[in-house]
Each structure stands twice: as C-alpha cells, then as structure tokens.
C-alpha cells in the first residue's frame, strides 16, 4: 500500500512539470506579448506607462528572449512561490487567487460528497428494483440530469427564485460576510449558501454516477457470490450492501479520477452564472482582458486540483480494492 502511494507521489512532479509547460503554452497562445497589449490598452484609456517601467517588465519576464528562457524564468519564480502580478488588478496574483482557491475546493468537495450520498442509494434501489416505478422515475431523472447543462439549471433556478420568491441566489456569502475575515459566523454563512451551487453542480454528476452504479450493480447481482451469500442465510438487504454494492463501488471510485477534476473545472460555468467568489469567474475575466499570467496561474491551479483529485481516487481505490493493492506493490 505504502509503496503504491509513494510510487504515485513520485510521478507527481513529472506530471506537474508537463502541466506547467501546457499552461505556459496557453499563456503564450494569444498573438503579441501581454506587455505590448497592456500598454496599448493603457494608451486607449488615455493613460500611459513610462518607458523604464515597460523595460523593467520586459526584462522581468524575459520577453525579448526565446520562449524556453521565458518559460524557465516563469517556472523558477513560481517554484519560489511568486506567481507574479496581475496587470489587470495591479495586485499580486497569489493574493487574488488564495481565498478563491479555498472556496473552489470547498465547493468541489461538498459537491462531490453530495453526489455520492445521493447517487449511491438511487443507483442501488434502481438496480435491485429493476423496472419498478422507482427505477423508471430515476432513469428519466438521470437522462434529464445528464442532458441539462449546469448553467441551464443555474439560470432556471435563479429565475424561479427571483420571479416566484423575489430573492437573488448569487454568491457564497451574505453581503456582511463577503469581505470579512474568517470567523465562525462566516463559516455558518458559507454553509447556508453553498448548498445551492452544490446541488446545481452535482445534478449532472449524480445522474451519471447513479447510471453507472445501476449498470455495475446489475452485472454484480447475477454473480455466484450473491447466491452463496443467500445460501448462507444472509438477509437480502444486508448482503446487497455488503457484496455487490461494495464491489460495484470500485469502478465508481476509479471514475473519481475524472469526476473530481471535472467538478472543479465544471464549477467555473455555474460560478460565473451565480457570481461565486471562486477562481472560475476570475479565469474568465483574466482571459477576456488578456491578463495572461493571472490566467496561466489559474489554469495551473486547475491542473493542480486535477492531479490531487486523481491521486485521491488512486489512493482510495487501492484502499478499497485489495487486488489493486497487491498488483501494484
């Protein structure tokens, strides 16, 4: 088990290195360099920057040097913990991202837990009561859940809440806590607001996981070990939970590898519609204003979250499935 985790951990830096290259390429993708476009933007709005400042910026990012030099300059600064400064906000990027990253993770993880908590019973009951009313109902629910883009759910709920209840359901905090320091009250306030984005974000995933679980379970329910457990005299529900559900969860857990990163990046759209203080809307804004180092840092954060998500699912799977544990060590 330990060997397996260490092996995975050793792969991490390599993966992150490749990801940093991709992020850098994305930063470089827009035509022209960002200082030039920034100066042009300033000029357009009537202000200007003095020559020396511009040269200092060019020197700092190595803009006149070849691409790989720029990359290593950028990477070495990041490794020292310096993400750079957002030209758009005129603030250090780490300051801009920090809190938003935390909220992204909180939203992502709570969505993840919600998804499992709901998909597990739905999938189990659908499979064990195949072709019952319950099964049909949730089959329809699952199809609609998968077919509805998350931002549509968000828009419709927002509209309903506004037109029927007269409330606006945006943000993750009440106004009085929005910019306050962390306190017990703020955590409670977050709890009061996080559930709606969580449900919206989790709907699609819940539908998918419930469908996968149902299919997996239907396979498992005909296996001889079920017969054996029945022949032992085990009560039906207990044996379903102990054996097939337990076994059907494994392929589900291996799907976490893609699901958790998907939640993190998928929250981007919902966060934009609901105006949540996560990194998603910030990425969108930085991309539109061509604040490329901010955008690159955020993309890199998404990659980081994805890597952590994959690692988490690997470890969880190894813990759940002894076969994998043996194989890998």
């Amino acid at each position: 088990m330990l060997v397996y985790i260490v092996k995975r951990l050793l792969l991490l830096p390599l993966l992150l290195l490749v990801f940093s290259v991709i992020a850098f390429i994305l930063i470089q993708a827009p035509p022209g360099d960002f200082v030039t476009s920034y100066v042009a933007e300033l000029a357009a709005s009537g202000s200007s920057m003095d020559r020396l400042q511009i040269d200092a910026l060019r020197e700092l990012y190595g803009l006149d040097r070849p691409g790989y030099v720029q990359y290593f300059k950028w990477l070495s600064r990041i490794l020292q913990g310096d993400l750079g400064i957002s030209l758009d906000f005129q603030k250090p990027i780490s300051e801009l991202i920090g809190q938003r990253l935390l909220l992204t993770v909180i939203l992502g993880l709570s969505t993840f837990l919600f998804t499992f908590a709901v998909a597990l019973p739905i999938g189990t009951i659908s499979a064990t009561r195949q072709y019952s009313f319950f099964d049909y109902f949730f089959t329809v629910f699952n199809y609609v859940g998968v077919a509805t883009p998350t931002f549509m759910t968000a828009l419709i709920l927002m509209w309903l809440a506004f037109s029927k209840l007269g409330i606006t359901i945006t943000g993750l905090f009440s106004p009085e806590y929005a910019d306050a320091a962390w306190s017990f009250g703020r955590v409670v306030d977050l709890g009061k607001h996080v559930w709606l984005p969580m449900v919206i974000l989790g709907l699609d995933g819940t539908a998918r996981l419930a469908r996968i679980l149902r299919a997996n379970l239907l396979d498992e329910l005909n296996k001889p070990y079920m017969e054996m457990a029945r022949a032992k005299g085990m009560p039906e529900w207990r044996l379903i939970i102990k054996y097939p559900v337990r076994l059907a969860i494994n392929p589900l857990v291996s799907s976490l590898g893609w699901y958790l990163p998907l939640i993190f990046s998928g929250s981007l759209i919902v966060a934009t519609v609901l105006n949540l203080p996560t990194i998603g809307p910030l990425l969108l804004r930085s991309l539109i204003s061509q604040d490329m180092f901010l955008a690159g840092s955020i993309v890199l954060s998404y990659f980081g979250l994805a890597v952590i998500g994959t690692l988490l699912s690997d470890v969880l799977l190894a813990w759940l499935d002894p076969r994998i544990r043996m194989e890998e060590s």
Binding site: L15, A29, P31, P261, G266, L283, V299, T310
Partner: peptide, 20 residues
C-alpha cells in the same frame, strides 16, 4: 493518459480566448 488527466474546460477557455 496525459490528455485524460487534464481538466478540459480551462484549456478550451484559454485556447478559444486566444483566437484572434
């Protein structure tokens, strides 16, 4: 494996934002 471990949405956004 590499491509599957990358979350696609930020990449799509960044690439399409880079289109002239």
């Amino acid at each position: 494996e590499l491509l599957q471990s990358i979350p696609p949405i930020p990449i799509w956004l960044a690439l399409s934002a880079a289109l002239p």
